[in-house]
């Protein structure tokens, strides 16, 4: 592929990748890290354009996942972690929020193992089927399918189990 057609191809697919990866990162890290990792991810997509499969989003998520992991090992980890915690786990709102259902779900998600919660996020937020999840996580489609199924079951169970507490008041563990 010559340079021009390479550029053209990248320019065609980049907007969709940018949009998707921005969201992926916004869901998982603070804005500063998200910006850095987005640039890094695009750079890698550009360098490895020839390896990019037709279904390029899961592949791009996979790249972003690794870049994010790298970034989080970085020096500013401590500082950013604080920023992230305060954003992801804000002080509980006593005022009428979107409804107790969300709290319940959030609490249940926190009770899952991180990998289980992540698979559910990839499924619901990134809208990926098991095949796509497999590409992101670098596992087989079969394994992704099984893990997704188990994670769903576990989430349902966890929510049902905590349903009773919730009726009394504050379901946060």
């Amino acid at each position: 592929m010559n340079v021009d057609s390479r550029r053209a191809r990248f320019e065609t697919l980049a907007p969709a990748v940018i949009d998707a990866v921005r969201r992926y990162l916004a869901r998982r890290t603070d804005p500063a890290t998200a910006d850095d990792v987005l640039s890094e991810t695009l750079l890698i997509c550009w360098r490895r354009l020839d390896e990019m499969p037709a279904e390029h989003l899961p592949w791009a998520y996979g790249v972003a996942r690794l870049c994010l992991a790298n970034a989080e090992r970085g020096q500013r980890r401590q500082f950013r972690l604080l920023a992230r915690i305060s954003r992801l786990d804000p002080p509980p709102q006593i005022v009428d929020g979107p409804g107790p259902a969300d709290d319940d779900l959030a609490a249940a998600l926190r009770r899952l193992r991180p990998e289980e919660a992540e698979i559910l996020r990839l499924w619901a937020w990134e809208d990926l089927a098991p095949a796509g999840i497999a590409v992101v996580l670098g596992i087989t489609a079969n394994a992704a399918s099984i893990r997704l199924h188990r994670a769903k079951e576990k989430l349902r169970k966890t929510m049902t189990a905590s349903g009773h507490e919730e009726s009394t008041e504050g379901s946060r563990p």
Binding site: A26, R27, L105, R121, A124, W125
Partner: peptide, 12 residues
């Protein structure tokens, strides 16, 4: 349902 419920909590 589960997916829809999860989606409502999408921070993005």
């Amino acid at each position: 349902d589960l997916r829809a419920r999860l989606r409502r909590t999408d921070p993005a």
